[in-house]
């Protein structure tokens, strides 16, 4: 099982210390991750739950956002302030969380969402969510529902994809 999100961000590099990102993640969920960074790669690993998220910082491909939201693409879900105050994207961050097939999908989805949320909080930008075909702005992501609900919805989509024989 692998989960992914894509963060389009005005940030150009990782936060300066791994401990700050670990604290940002820890403060929002029931996880105690250790964060490591090496060049464009970043890992957040929680030994207690046996989960690791991997993120990779890459140049922002021009027009990615416009391509994503062009019909019949992803639906933008953001406030006017999210949209009006957004800074130009500089990087795209691919965030993936892999887990054994017998892992609890909701726990994996919550870990994935919580790590992503911590990175996003520090870097800014918009989040492309392939499970709900949505581009989230921060205020709607945090204002509409808690991370646990994001995780539950993602887990439901994964389960449906599995039933239909699609990628999960």
């Amino acid at each position: 099982m692998e989960l992914e999100y894509r963060l389009l961000t005005p940030g150009e590099r990782w936060p300066d210390d791994a401990a700050s990102l670990a604290a940002a993640i820890r403060s929002q969920g029931p996880f105690q991750p250790v964060v490591e960074m090496a060049g464009p790669e970043l890992w957040a690993h929680d030994a207690a739950v046996g989960l690791t998220s991997h993120a990779r910082l890459a140049p922002y491909p021009a027009q990615s956002y416009e391509s994503l939201i062009a019909p019949p693409g992803y639906a933008p879900r953001m406030t006017d302030r999210d949209r009006d105050t957004a800074l130009p994207f500089q990087r795209a961050v691919e965030i993936r969380t892999s887990a054994a097939p017998d892992s609890d999908p909701t726990t994996v989805a919550l870990f994935h969402a919580t790590v992503t949320d911590g990175l996003w909080w520090l870097l800014g930008g918009f989040l492309a969510d392939p499970y709900r075909r949505t581009v989230w702005g921060w205020r709607r992501w945090r204002g509409d529902q808690p991370l646990a609900t994001h995780a539950a919805e993602t887990a439901q989509h994964l389960a449906a994809a599995r039933r239909e024989g699609g990628p999960a």
Binding site: G11, P15, D16, D17, A19, S20, L21, A23, A24, S27, Q28, W121, L122, L123
Partner: peptide
Amino acid sequence: DLARTPGAVESMLKINGGRRSA
């Protein structure tokens, strides 16, 4: 700058009751 200052996230969480908010 919370993204650029080592230890800043922890020190902010310590003084504001654990609210991760800027």
